[in-house]
Design a protein around this nucleic acid. Structure first.
Lengths: 350, 350
DNA sequence: CTGAAAGCGCTTACAG
DNA sequence: CTGAAAGCGCTTACAG
């Protein structure tokens, strides 16, 4: 089956009527519609997207921009795929397709986005891996391309919609929990890039220290990349200290794998010799020994929220989603593992 | 800048000439071309894809179909992102864009593919996660959509192009290596789905046993899902045996995380109490203790090969890629870790 | 309720 | 070397 014209000829009616029948317009005879839908099904007719897009001025396709880093980093394990699932669920309600646009390693994210937007392949965008200052916000605002963002940025305006994880909150609570377990020398590891989440995590860390009456010591802040190698490097630096911290917060769970190894190599035991709380639950963390204490959230729900926020930005659906919040800091729940044993267990192990 | 018409009016020339200039046609005055390119750059004009696609009958976009599973499984760590990078590199030579089409959890892959093909959003497809019998092959063949596949299938015809990893070869070599280290009771863990790679891995395993004069024992074949939880389950089953294997091959490296934990919980030591060789190098495997012995390949090169194979399938580029092989079983190289110590070290540890 | 016709933005034979 | 014109496949006001 080639096009709507062939389908119309086969049915002996006009292409206009076929189009109206297929698109669920009200003013089509019930029997006509039945015949059209049946013939389309039988002959496997699906409208050519280019024709539709050109005529309608929109593509019914939403783009999710992913950077190479966001996939290779620890977030790739289950987080992004599940967020994407939630997104697709929310969008599929209105027959909107989601396509993933992967910015190549080395390609400037801003140029990439500019090209995608100019080509008008997508009607709206979801962006992620936001930075403190992120030119994609003003660019999309200026281009008039509806978008939502997974992640905050100073560059976001009051009109922009985003969902972000409560990095501040979990860092604060993690410090307080460790304090209650008797720790007084609590370190933190965060990426050294200008990714927004690192700063928020450090803010929460400082706030937690303040609540507990502990002094902030810049020597306890370890800058490292958010993966296994980064965690290994942090571990080695800690092991080399004369006066080691007794606990650490990791803002990326994959760091724990490297941190565990560095301790194991040195004959030290994670959990006993260094209490560890990491940012996000992951399959790997669940099967480390000791099991990682971390924070949990429902990535599918995050995706659904992002999808609804996006729909509220699209003229065609805005009315249906007027009650969707404009921004959301996503709460996370502590999952108790074995990597930050309370004091009684600590002494038991010692 | 809206369309080519506005750009043409601004330059006081026809849209045809503007189009020819932008598309690098030979028969355009050099000075005219310069003016057009400059104006397009200044005004930020990029052709509307829908218009181009409709007129040309092709979109210059290639689709990579990913299933939810292929992202959530261990392969998401660095393998797929790097393959994608290689693909993009190969395609970008000819200004072809790659978009990722993610089949939702629960959506039938065949329906999904059918819809994507019918919509004509992409000119060609890359498919992955092939199965023993995979209806996507006959479907794409029948639809006349050029494609390549990452993975073999019985459903592939002689005309179809694919790249696959040498699962058979590595399983065989792993058995032989373990035999040389003194192991006589060698187990294997493979997924219980009909993913092609599982069968190939088991074939290689059997071949390795035969070479070494060892009997095949179906009780040493552990079916488990290709992730941490699956590896944990395998570990527990092995620990419960009266007569344990002394070595195991894993066809998914993420299984090792769970396997390590199950052994650790039981007071056993992976490597010493069970030699382990896993299918693919990964950041996690590098930082496990003991470090995982596994097989390495260059995922970027795999992606580049897939890209070239695909280009050889496209009429516009076939001539340039006539020397590209039609199929390729990708060799992998052993990376010595600490999880399958040779006999002398084994006794040293005991 | 249906048909005839216009036109979305682009590229490309064709004429000059 | 350039312009005028056709037409890719679709949807949608408009007329009836």
């Amino acid at each position: 089956m080639k096009g709507i014209r062939q389908l119309a000829e086969h049915l002996q009616i006009s292409t206009g009527t076929v189009s109206r029948a297929l698109n669920g317009k009200a003013d089509v005879n019930a029997e006509t519609r039945r015949r059209v839908l049946e013939a389309a099904e039988t002959l496997g007719y699906v409208p050519n997207q280019a024709g539709r897009s050109l005529r309608q001025g929109r593509s019914r396709t939403i783009g999710l921009m992913l950077s190479h880093d966001s996939m290779v980093g620890g977030a790739s394990d289950t987080f992004f795929p599940l967020v994407i699932n939630g997104l697709q669920e929310a969008l599929s309600v209105h027959s909107l397709d989601l396509i993933l646009l992967l910015c190549q390693r080395g390609e400037a994210p801003d140029d990439f986005l500019r090209r995608m937007v100019a080509q008008r392949i997508v009607d709206a965008m979801v962006i992620s891996s936001t930075r403190l200052e992120d030119p994609r916000f003003p660019f999309l605002n200026k281009a008039g391309m509806p978008f939502v963002s997974l992640g905050r940025s100073h560059s976001a305006t009051a009109d922009n919609r985003w969902v972000d994880l409560d990095f501040e909150g979990i860092a604060e609570r993690a410090v307080e929990r460790l304090y209650q377990h008797g720790h007084r020398k609590i370190a933190v590891a965060a990426p050294d890039t200008d990714v927004q989440l690192a700063e928020l995590f450090l803010d929460g860390y400082r706030r937690g220290l303040a609540h507990c009456g502990l002094d902030y010591d810049p020597d306890l802040v370890f800058r490292a990349e958010a993966h296994e190698q980064g965690g290994y490097a942090v571990g080695q630096r800690i092991i080399g200290l004369r006066n080691r911290p007794t606990a650490i917060l990791l803002n990326a769970e994959m760091m724990s794998v490297g941190l565990y190894r560095s301790f194991g190599e040195a004959g030290l035991q994670p959990g006993r010799d260094l209490a560890i709380i990491a940012e996000r639950e992951s399959p790997v963390g669940r099967f480390l020994l000791p099991r990682l204490t971390c924070f949990r959230l429902d990535p599918i729900a995050v995706g659904q929220m992002l999808g609804k926020m996006l729909l509220s930005q699209l003229p065609a659906f805005a009315d249906l989603y007027s009650d969707v919040p404009t921004t959301k800091i996503w709460p996370m729940e502590l999952v108790e593992g074995e990597s930050d044993p309370p004091p009684e267990k600590q002494s038991g192990l010692l």
